[in-house]
């Protein structure tokens, strides 16, 4: 993306648009999110033409209305707009697919931040390492490699020979078990 807007925040761009009425600003803002909106539409609509239509339809739909909306955080808002648009489109075409709702991310957030260097709380650190010891081997290894050794999934696959699917699920389950263990330890 070669846009000159990368230094301004989403909300600043939006404000500029509202103040000046110059839709060029909204165009810049929307363009930032096209990769995400397009990708999400691909997921639900399952082909590139429909996804492209969705991206343009959403833009044309929002352009006249958005100046009147009070949007606190553009990213989360456009996420739900895009998703809703996809759901409506699916409903119209009567495709009945089972959809999963991604579970609360807050849980993972905690665990991830515990692994980052900014975490200086000693009690938390100790508890975390203690809990890691209690994990089943495969989960502990996967968590260690991903979070402590900064290896990507592809790296881990290469090193361990496990399948991508299994590694992802070990990390997922490991995070969950760590969460449970930490809750017990820290909440007494």
């Amino acid at each position: 993306m070669t846009l000159r807007d990368t230094t301004e925040s989403d909300e600043e761009l939006l404000l500029r648009f509202k103040k000046t009425g110059n839709s060029d600003y909204f165009g810049q803002l929307y363009n930032r999110y096209i990769p995400l909106i397009y990708g999400l539409s691909l997921k639900y609509l399952q082909n590139t033409e429909l996804a492209q239509d969705a991206v343009m339809d959403i833009f044309e739909d929002l352009l006249p209305k958005i100046a009147n909306y009070e949007i606190r955080e553009f990213r989360t808002w456009i996420y739900s707009v895009a998703k809703n648009h996809a759901f409506h489109a699916l409903n119209d075409s009567k495709l009945t697919k089972t959809m999963e709702i991604i579970p609360e991310i807050v849980e993972s957030d905690d665990i991830i931040s515990l692994f980052e260097e900014e975490e200086t709380n000693e009690a938390h650190r100790k508890a975390l390492y203690g809990c890691m010891e209690q994990l089943p081997d495969v989960q502990r290894d996967a968590i260690r490699m991903f979070f402590l050794e900064d290896m990507s999934y592809a790296d881990i696959v290469e090193t361990t020979g496990f399948q991508l699917k299994s590694i992802k699920s070990h990390i997922q389950n490991g995070k969950r078990n760590l969460r449970i263990c930490l809750d017990k330890k820290l909440k007494r």
């Binding site: 990769p35 995400l36 909106i37 397009y38 990708g39 999400l40 539409s41 691909l42 997921k43 639900y44 399952q46 082909n47 590139t48 996804a51 990213r75 989360t76 996420y79 998703k83 991604i102 991310i105 993972s108 957030d109 991830i112 991903f146 979070f147 900064d150 290896m151 990507s152 999934y153 592809a154 790296d155 290469e158």
Partner: peptide
């Protein structure tokens, strides 16, 4: 190649950001 630290950082971001995660699914599927 999806290898290396920057890939790992991206994957970590995927865990936290449902929007990103869903978009990824779209690209992987289609």
């Amino acid at each position: 190649s999806k290898k290396g630290k920057s890939a790992q950082k991206f994957e970590q971001q995927l865990m936290r950001d449902p929007f990103l995660a869903e978009a990824m699914e779209g690209y992987e599927k289609v």
